[in-house]
Amino acid sequence: MGEVNPDLQSRVVKFPGGGVLVAGIDEIFNWARSNSMWSLTFGLSCCAIEMMATAASHYDLDRFGILFRATPRQADVMIVAGWVSVKMAPFIRRLYDQMPDPKHVLAMGGCACAGGPYRDSETIVKGVGEIVPVDVFVYGCPPRPENLIHGLILLQERIREESILGVRKREPITVQG
């Protein structure tokens, strides 16, 4: 969903039954979207190891229908796991732009959220939020797999609140480390 005309909502809901119809469609669409969040296969540094551990046997992200796709064209969620160097930033933005809407970003680890231990370095971007809109910040160095799963579940809940009419909420969710 790109940006939708903001007063579309009020216009559609004015129709008799319009609100019910939209709510029903939203319910089904959001159920599908939130239960099938395919994420992009890429990791930037140490947090990526923790992300792989979350997807592997012990924590098993596939339980929630989250699997990793190699191409951005088939991904819905981008998990930025690790520090983003200034050199890497344009590529992250490009990957984000290549993903089809509706898309979401989860910043994993202190580095992706705000620069982490490298915050004072001039070669590290101070949080991936400076280059792409982030939905969920999961702090920690690295976040435990439980924390990452918690972030993903919060993201699912956010997706369930979206509507095919409205402009999406942009204020990020924060998960403390």
């Binding site: 099938s36 592997a56 339980r63 229908g65």
Partner: peptide, 19 residues
């Protein structure tokens, strides 16, 4: 040695429908 989809529908049967 994982479980595969379990949360969508009973035992994850509806997973492919959601996808």
């Amino acid at each position: 040695s994982r479980l595969g989809p379990v949360h969508v529908g009973p035992r994850g049967w509806l997973q492919s429908v959601a996808d």
